[in-house]
Write a protein that binds this DNA or RNA. Structure first.
Lengths: 217, 217
DNA sequence: TTGACAAAAATTGTTAACAATAATGTATTG
DNA sequence: CAATACATTATTGTTAACAATTTTTGTCAA
């Protein structure tokens, strides 16, 4: 799916905000007709990942400070109750799902696969929603996480462009021990860390060269 | 906007689940080309309002019990912290927005404008999100409320097809008095009432006659 | 009457040409 | 040389025709 590819590229911060996504180039890059591309862009724009300007084309969304605040507020609203619920009544499958994912994260980190680490870090939070077994929330979390990627890419200080090490494991640990309050606390702390890694004054320049960026996913 | 019109029709329960939305008929009803219609249907399907089946057309989404649970769970996850936050620090504009809306609801009720009451009841919850000043959450709430409309239309017992009288006012009252806990409690109670008005075994037949349903909005 | 099969109709998916708009480059003028 | 007006180019938006698929209809035989 073409939407997934762009999603992934954004999550891995290979597609910088404000990058222009021209139809012709995307058609070429993905080897599909204009219809498919336009459909994908429409969907992406409906999720705030892409900015669709009338008669001017599609651009990777470039969230401002206010939008960044909204996204983080939404996450702080949704995720704490989510992990609380998860920790209150976790099932085997969910726990397995999460620990497997953390194993993936660790592996990628050890191999110094930077962009893989970035993407997996984001996906962990989506997996939290999936573990809670709620498709509606899963979809919302995915959108929020992807938009967070954009925000971190824009405002993040160069060092920590993803979730700090070990914090995911700490959250899972609290869930495994059926300790809702601790799980919630650790999650909030985790989100705070991500947010504190931002510098709301800094802005970074967009890059280009779509074909090479999107082609290799 | 054509999406808004369909949204509205669903919210007012004039478009029953499983109703087929054929492109030709929609083109006729709205007086637009097929492109616009297809774009609208795609957006609606991405929000779970419409079910897009390959080569078979678009149908008003017909949520099953599991989906209904997910929607209510999502609302119970998001709305309580939302009103808590709102009650903790309400601003004048928000309070005005909400009380004005409740006035609208009352007026419609007094005039026995049933479908108007149904729609306004749903919109109140969207206004709660707007009052909190968060666009991301507002969009999510709108989707959730619309899907709830579908669910109530499907599983609701004939009597209470919308939010019980006065409960919105009670929530606003708690917010006005800056009482987060009470506001949260009343909201949870309110959502419970809606949910208790459902009968998960009953299903209702779809209707038809698109032009007349959509035309008058 | 019912069932299976085939033809026809209707509906959706795709493509390609066309129109409209914005971006770019060029020349002319002060 | 700078700036503006104009022409050219490129890109997006729309329309309409075509292809593919599904649904319906009609026919015939059991």
């Amino acid at each position: 799916m073409i939407v997934e590819r762009i999603y992934k590229a954004v999550m891995e911060q290979r597609l910088a905000p404000n990058t222009k996504l021209s139809e012709a180039r995307l058609c070429e890059a993905f080897g599909v007709g204009r219809m498919r591309v336009r459909r994908a862009l429409l969907l992406l724009s409906s999720q705030g990942i892409v900015n669709l300007q009338s008669n001017r084309g599609a651009y990777v969304s470039c969230p401002d400070e206010s939008e960044a605040n909204d996204v983080f507020e939404a996450r702080l609203l949704i995720e704490p109750p989510l992990v609380r619920k998860l920790a209150a009544a976790p099932n085997e499958t969910s726990l397995r799902l999460l620990s497997d994912h953390i194993a993936l994260e660790d592996a990628a980190r050890n191999k110094n696969q930077r962009i893989e680490v970035i993407r997996l870090s984001g996906e962990f939070h989506v997996k939290l929603a999936q573990a809670a077994g709620n498709k509606v929330i899963s979809r919302m979390m995915r959108e929020l996480v992807t938009r967070t990627s954009l925000i971190v890419g824009l405002f993040g200080r160069s060092s920590n462009s993803s979730c700090p090490d070990g914090e995911h494991a700490a959250i899972l640990d609290a869930i495994q021990q059926r300790d809702p309050k601790r799980a919630e606390k650790r999650l909030i702390l985790h989100l705070d860390h991500i947010r504190n890694g931002l510098d709301m004054d800094a802005r970074k320049p967009p890059l280009d060269d779509l074909a090479s960026i999107l082609g290799a996913s």
